[in-house]
Amino acid sequence: MQKRQLSKSSARASSGPRKPDKKSRAAFATPEEVGRQLQLGLRIKALRDDRDLTQEQLAELIGKSVDTVSSIERGKSAPGFATAFDIAKALGVSYVDLFDWVERDKLTPQQKDQAVLVEKFRALIEGRSNPTMEDVVVLTEAISKAASKRAG
């Protein structure tokens, strides 16, 4: 009996669904996610420029390629947690401050409430506060609510 050789594309098609590659995953991002990525990228670029750092210098400081830094700054990709932490450290800001690009006077009342929670959380993780039990409960409920929204 003669064996039939499968081409790479037919072998791939018969092996079940494939995980999208990194470039095609961007096509699945919602407009809101893309907007946040761009805002984060612009924030990183502004902080880098304020410190007179080149993309090459930032890339070296965080152990990533210049292409990675460029892609993040243009909002084409989002850094993972560890990379964002490394970027914040290299730029001399806290991790939370890296994501702080919204002008406070343009916030809705709900967003202002969220900003208060973020500030409480920031003070807690930076060791600037002694939280009350009420603070812990409020923060835990907010995190739980946010997590369930993302999962649902």
Rank of each mutant, 00 (worst) to 15 (best):
V136P: 07
A46E: 08
R48Y: 03
I44R: 00
K76G: 10
T30R: 05
L6P: 10
G63D: 07
D100W: 02
D113S: 13
R128F: 04
L53H: 02
G75R: 00
L47W: 09
I143T: 12
L117F: 04
F121P: 05
Y95R: 06
V137L: 12
A78I: 00
E134G: 14
L98Y: 00
D52C: 12
P17I: 09
R150Y: 10
A123K: 02
I72G: 01
D97Y: 01
Q37S: 03
A88N: 00
G35T: 05
A46D: 02
D49A: 08
L107G: 05
Q110R: 06
L38E: 03
S24H: 10
T132I: 04
R150Q: 13
Q5F: 14
D135N: 08
F99M: 01
D105S: 03
D105M: 11
A29Y: 11
F85H: 07
L139W: 04
S7Q: 15
E103P: 05
F121G: 09
L42T: 01
K3N: 06
S15H: 13
S24I: 13
I87W: 00
E60M: 10
K22M: 12
R104I: 03
A88Y: 04
A59K: 09
K45P: 01
V138K: 07
S77D: 07
F99W: 02
I62R: 03
A29G: 09
Q114Y: 13
A142C: 05
E103G: 08
R4T: 10
A115W: 04
L40N: 03
K8M: 06
R122N: 02
I125H: 02
G92C: 05
A147P: 05
A26Q: 11
S65Y: 05
L47K: 03
V118H: 00
T140C: 02
R51L: 03
L6R: 11
L107V: 06
G16D: 02
R43Q: 01
G127Y: 04
K149R: 11
S14A: 15
K120P: 06
R36M: 09
L58W: 07
D86I: 07
D52E: 13
V137A: 12
T108E: 13
L42F: 01
S14G: 14
F28L: 15
T30A: 10
R18P: 11
K19I: 15
Q39W: 00
Q110K: 10
L117R: 05
N130K: 15
V137T: 14
S77R: 11
R36E: 04
G127V: 04
R128I: 09
